[in-house]
Computed example of a mutant assay.
Amino acid sequence: MPQITEEFMREMLAKSRPYSVVILKAGPKIGMEGVRDIIWQHGCRNMELRMAGLLPIICRVTDDSDVAGIGIFNASEEEVRKIMDEDPGVQAGVFIYDVHPCQSFPGDSLPG
């Protein structure tokens, strides 16, 4: 593991900036008829948000928990609530969500 100096750590922390993380969970209508089409619409919308630079990190959760996904938005908590309230899956009751402010480093990404 690389050694991190206190100076480097302070420099990196000064570069961090606010983002918003969404925890997407199964909603009360997750088992409704036609849910696959709604989830597809939700996924297409996520790709649009990703291409627009608003949702650079999208993670589908694949275990048996009620957590369906995690996303990191390049937007304020208020903006993200508006975006999520317009999501077809949320509007249909297929998903519910929590938004949390967070800090991270610009340019971070998942390895390819």
Rank of each mutant, 00 (worst) to 15 (best):
G31I: 01
S65D: 05
K25Q: 02
G53F: 03
Q91E: 10
I57F: 04
M47P: 09
R81W: 02
V94A: 01
M84D: 04
I57R: 05
R81N: 15
M47A: 13
Q41A: 10
D37Q: 09
V90I: 14
G69T: 10
G71T: 11
E86I: 07
G89E: 03
I58L: 15
D85G: 15
R81Y: 06
E79M: 01
I39C: 13
G31P: 01
D87V: 12
R81V: 13
R60E: 12
V94Q: 00
Q91A: 13
S65Q: 04
I38W: 05
D66G: 05
S65H: 02
E33I: 00
R50A: 11
S65L: 07
G89V: 04
T62S: 11
R60H: 10
E86R: 13
F73D: 03
A92L: 01
E77A: 10
Q91V: 11
D37I: 00
E77N: 09
L55K: 14
Y97W: 07
I72T: 10
P88F: 06
P56S: 06
A92C: 01
V80Y: 03
A75R: 00
V99E: 09
N46F: 13
I83V: 13
A92I: 02
L49G: 12
E48F: 10
A68D: 07
W40M: 15
C44Y: 14
G93H: 06
K25M: 00
D63R: 00
K25T: 09
E48D: 15
M84L: 15
Y97T: 08
A26W: 00
A92D: 00
D85F: 12
G69E: 07
A26K: 03
M51S: 12
R50F: 08
S76M: 02
A26L: 03
R60Y: 11
L49C: 12
C44Q: 15
F73M: 11
C59W: 15
V99S: 10
G71R: 07
S76A: 03
L55D: 15
E78I: 14
M32I: 08
K82F: 00
G93C: 05
G43F: 12
R50V: 10
D66F: 02
V90R: 03
L54S: 10
G71W: 03
D98W: 08
I70W: 05
C59N: 13
R81T: 11
R36Q: 13
E78M: 04
I70N: 08
I58R: 15
